[in-house]
């Protein structure tokens, strides 16, 4: 099990534990983290699991693929550290990952 810390736009924090191999989106949804809608169920096609990844963790993530990049392009709140968290798979290396949810999902 690894820990993931979710912060919302107002600074409220929620720490959850999840198994390696699941996505950050699944970790959020199965622990009732608010601010993640995940309308498409994890197929990188709705951009409603948008998170801002804390800088310290950015280098540890797999590179963004063109499809995720295009879907993130649908959000007007995109930043440098934006990711769709259905595309981040938890591993031991990501234990302690910290992300912030935007005020609105697309």
């Amino acid at each position: 099990m690894v820990k993931v810390l979710f912060k919302d736009h107002a600074g409220r924090e929620q720490s959850v534990e999840a198994a390696t191999g699941v996505s950050v989106m699944q970790a959020a949804v199965s622990n009732g983290v608010s601010g993640i809608d995940a309308d498409c169920g994890g197929s990188c096609s709705c951009a409603t699991c948008h998170v801002y990844v804390d800088e310290a963790w950015l280098d540890k993530l797999a590179a963004i693929d063109p499809n995720e990049d295009a879907m993130l392009g649908l959000s007007s709140d995109r930043r440098e550290n934006s990711r769709l968290c259905c595309q981040i798979t938890l591993s031991a290396e990501l234990d302690g990952l910290s992300v912030t949810t935007p005020e609105f999902q697309f």
């Binding site: 309308d39 498409c40 649908l74």
Partner: peptide, 10 residues
């Protein structure tokens, strides 16, 4: 929320 009415993808 998991419905097709808005379509999916780009």
């Amino acid at each position: 929320r998991q419905h097709l009415s808005f379509g999916f993808g780009l």
